[in-house]
Design a protein around this nucleic acid. Structure first.
Lengths: 337, 337
DNA sequence: CTGTTAGCGCGTTCAA
DNA sequence: TTGAACGCGCTAACAG
């Protein structure tokens, strides 16, 4: 058996003793093919190990059968980003069973904003999942312009109308976290918040503020972090310097909470007795801190799977409404608050 | 401007007042085109925003201009896998500047071994980076059979001949780690080793054993982990149950070392005074444990970039020898040993 | 239900 | 140096 070039549809047709178009129909869905023909083709396909040539098919169907996943590039310092891994899982789980190809586009933080947008607009993919919601990337506008089917994981920045997105209810989540601190008796509650050019960062700050205002507590102890452990530690140091009397902290991500925890330890503060701490995400690291972190569960995998399902619907031509799908977070008991 | 369908090469040619083949040549490398024609085509391309149709090009060049990255699926329990993030970075950095598409293939642990192999063999990609070196995946044979250019990150399992791979010197690394324990006076040294169906797991165990044998110390305190924190904790518990007198532990990954650390703490062992601990990987988590982990640096990003460079060479038709590129690890000082 | 026919957009001979 | 003609492998009309 000479396997110089892969078998083509012609080979299959010849082998099955039918015409090429019959073979094609049998392979794609089997509409209007007799059982015998179908069987013969199936047989030939198996015998030859035939796989349709994607390029040829793509050329005529005008679809590429591939979707892009746009993600922020993993951080240089802290390679470990559980969110990234969760998104990856959600998307791959979401397209399992389809024959969609997943093309990965890592959005570098420092690069010219046009590259990704240009790529998405150039017809190389049928749709996109965007999990890179930094304001500066400006993918939103580019996407509306090219009309590429796309679903955001996390509320896109700026004008939401016309965009599909799924998200966890970050405001509700940060309320849960902050309320927990209030309920356990904390009266001086600070927050290490996320980047304010990401909707998650903004919303998690807002939930904290609203909860404290409702409780009649001050809302001045705020420092901005970057969702990483190192950034969280830096922020915590600044926070404690400015407000030594803190008895509670809400960290807008578990990674940052980890950093906060280290700083608290190094300053001799007991957790939760001196300072109580609540994080956000519950993507595997909360159980591994000491003490175990009380946190808010963020269903990233489910969220991303939903986004993928929505995208598949769009690709199938379904008239999917742009109502966002918002997932509910919930508090996860730990020992830190 | 009606942008119903994207501009084609014909449009460019018309706009530039040249024939289609001249336009084609001007776009691909500019061989045998007059400066005027070249300029006219460049201009037309810019004006029209032309992007070559990948499918059409692929059909005639018989290349797909995309490569696959095969990785193990991130673990369900511990989403955080720094190795994964490092590999991702290395590959994307490695193809930056080329117009190669990166197709992501996540290798599920429980799935039929044929899926990935079939995909790789079906001509959908021009080459592959394989960072999923579990024995059971059996990609090695499939790859030799299909003759798809491929480079492994981490020594492939089984017969290495004919395969390209890059790796860190895991044996040397684990020797460094173990020797450190010996040098600081440990006499009863155990190891939590990695999966024994991965070359990294095997090699890191071997370096530990050889070092102890050379030092005349016993090599019976071995338990197998799975490179995760939870697995490391389980393994550590078993290890300490069987060998309560341990005064040193080499964990074959930092994630596992983290688990070991927790178990040691919970059993009231001081680190490093009662039990010294050395990890492996240094991918961001070693600095964040308490005490900071002494570990062995594993240059994953560099390794993966080298693999990608090799693959690019293969794709360019260069006669790349299959001599492996082995990177040297080095010890990173921490407080745990 | 089946086979014949006509492109999809592009790179590449081959003549001019 | 240029352009005309061909075919890559496939799907979708259309006619039978």
């Amino acid at each position: 058996m000479t396997l110089g070039t892969p078998p083509t549809l012609d080979d299959v047709a010849r082998e099955a003793r039918v015409s090429r178009s019959t073979a094609s129909r049998a392979i794609n869905g089997g509409e209007r093919v007799s059982p015998e023909a179908q069987a013969a083709v199936d047989d030939a396909v198996a015998r030859l190990g035939y796989t349709p040539n994607r390029a040829a098919r793509s050329l005529v169907t005008r679809r590429t059968d591939s979707i892009a996943l746009v993600m922020p590039e993993p951080d240089t310092l802290m390679l470990t980003d559980p969110f990234l891994a969760g998104v990856l899982r959600g998307v791959t789980d979401g397209i399992a069973g389809t024959d969609l190809q997943l093309v990965l586009l890592l959005n570098r933080l420092d690069e010219a904003p046009g590259r990704i947008a240009r790529y998405l607009g150039s017809g190389h993919v049928d749709g996109a999942i965007i999990a890179s919601a930094h304001e500066r990337h400006q993918l939103e506008d580019a996407l509306t312009r090219t009309r590429l089917p796309a679903v955001f994981v996390g509320r896109p920045f700026g004008d939401v109308s016309g965009h599909h997105f799924v998200d966890v209810d970050n405001i509700a989540g940060s309320r849960l976290a902050t309320q927990r601190l209030v309920d356990r008796g904390c009266r001086r509650i600070g927050t290490v918040t996320g980047p304010q050019d990401m909707s998650a960062g903004i919303d998690r700050l807002r939930g904290w503020r609203e909860t404290l205002e409702a409780a009649g507590l001050p809302t001045d102890a705020v420092v901005t972090g970057d969702f990483t452990a190192v950034g969280g530690a830096d922020a915590a140091a600044r926070l404690l310097d400015a407000h030594p009397d803190l008895d509670g902290v809400f960290a807008a991500s578990d990674l940052m909470a980890e950093g906060v925890l280290r700083v608290l330890h190094s300053r001799g503060k007991r957790v939760p007795d001196d300072v109580a701490l609540v994080g956000f995400d519950d993507l595997g690291i909360a159980q591994h801190t000491n003490p175990r972190l009380t946190t808010v569960h963020n269903p990233v995998v489910a969220t991303t799977m939903a986004a993928t399902a929505t995208l598949l619907g769009l690709l199938a031509g379904a008239p999917v409404p742009t109502e966002p799908q918002i997932f509910a977070p919930y508090l996860v008991e730990g020992e830190s608050a």
